[in-house]
Simulated scan of single mutants.
Amino acid sequence: MRALICTAFDQPEALTVQSVPDPTPGPGEVILQVEAAGVNYPDALMVMGQYQVKPPLPFTPGAEAAGVISAVGEGVTHLRVGQRAAAFTGTGAFAERLLAPATSVMPLPDAVPSDVAAGLPLAFGTSMHALVDRAGLRAGETLLVLGAAGGVGLAAVMIGKALGARVIAAASSEEKLQLCREHGADETVNYSEGDLRERLKALTNGRGPDVIYDPVGGDLAEPALRSIGWGGRYLVVGFAGGGIPKLPLNLPLLKGASLVGVFWGEFARRDPRANARNLARLLGWVADGTIRPLVSERYPLERTPEALRALLERRVTGKVVVTP
C-alpha cells in the first residue's frame, strides 16, 4: 500500500509517499480502508518533533480517518468487514489502509459521509470534551471562541450553539467571521482590529463571557482572560498562535474564575466509554443537521505536506482532509 512516511523530525515538506507492506490485524484490531483522513495541527507538530508525543522513526502521521473496514482480528465482535467506520489512532492515518485497535473505531451512520466523519474525532471530540466535560457549559451562558474559524474553533462554535449557549466568535478577518456566522455564531469580533477587551465588554454589557475556548494562546490569552466573567471557565486548548502565554494568576483570583486544561487524547485513553458517549452524541447531531461540519478542502496523499503547511500558517478554515 501507499503511505506518507516521516523518516526524520523535520518540516512537512520532507515527508514522502512510499510503498509499504499492507498491515495485518492482530487480536482486537481492525484494518480500515481509508477514504479520508483528517488533517490536524498536532500532526504537523508531531512531524516536526514539537509535540508532546514523539513516535519512533520512521512513522506514518495522521491521527484520524474514516472509511470501510476491510479486515477484523480475533476477538472483534462489534465490528464487521464492509462496515463504514471512523477511527482515532494518533498516527498512521495518512495511508491507504490503517491498522486500528477496535476500541478506537466507531461505526458510522449512512447519513455521515467519510470526509466529514474523518474530521470529527479530534476537532469535534476535543471541543465536545472541553465544553461538556471540562467547562460544563449551560444553555443561556455566553461562550467566547478564539480562533473560531479553524478546525477546533468552528467545532466549538457549532457545539456551543447545539448546547444552547450564546456564542461570540473571534477571528482575524471578516471572511473568517462570516464563516462563523454561517455556522451559528451570534456575535463576532475581529481581533486584528480594535481592542478585544472593549469589544467583549460591549457585547456582554460589562459582564464578560462565562466560558472562553482558547486554542490560540499567544498574545490573545491575557486580554481574553482579563475579560472573563465572574465564575468563568478559561479552557486552555492549544497554542496555534505559536506562543505559550504566561498569565498573571491574580486574574482568575479576582474573577473567581478557573483555568481549565483540555487534553482530549488523554481523556479518550483514560475514559473511552465517556468519549464514546460524546462521539455518539456528536454523530447524532451531524446526522440530523444540528451540526454541519465544514470540509473546506480535500488533498490527495502526495499533497499532504501542503495541507500541513496551510494549517501551520493558519490559512485553513474548518477542516481539511487527505483522500488516499
Rank of each mutant, 00 (worst) to 15 (best):
L4I: 15
L4Y: 14
I5K: 10
C6W: 12
Q11Y: 08
L15A: 14
L15N: 10
V20H: 11
V20K: 09
G26F: 09
V30A: 05
A36M: 00
P42F: 06
M48K: 15
Q52R: 12
K54S: 12
E64P: 01
V68M: 01
V68C: 06
G73L: 09
L79P: 04
L79A: 08
V81Q: 07
Q83S: 07
R84V: 05
A86I: 11
G92K: 11
R97A: 10
S104P: 02
S104T: 15
D110G: 03
V112P: 02
S114I: 07
A117W: 07
L122N: 10
D133T: 13
E141S: 09
L144Q: 00
A155P: 01
V157S: 08
L163H: 00
V167C: 06
A169T: 05
A170L: 01
E174T: 13
K176G: 01
K176S: 11
L177K: 03
Q178W: 04
L179H: 13
H183N: 11
H183Q: 12
G184V: 05
T188F: 03
V189S: 01
N190G: 09
E193M: 11
E193L: 15
L196V: 11
R197Y: 10
R207K: 14
D210M: 08
I212Q: 06
G217E: 08
Y234D: 01
V236L: 10
A240C: 01
G243D: 14
L247T: 04
K255T: 01
S258L: 01
S258R: 03
G261V: 06
F263D: 11
W264Q: 07
G265F: 09
F267D: 02
A268I: 02
L282C: 11
L283R: 05
G284F: 00
W285G: 00
W285R: 03
E297W: 06
L308P: 12
R309K: 12
R309A: 13
L312D: 04
R315A: 13
T317L: 02
K319Q: 11
V321S: 08
V321D: 07
V321Q: 09
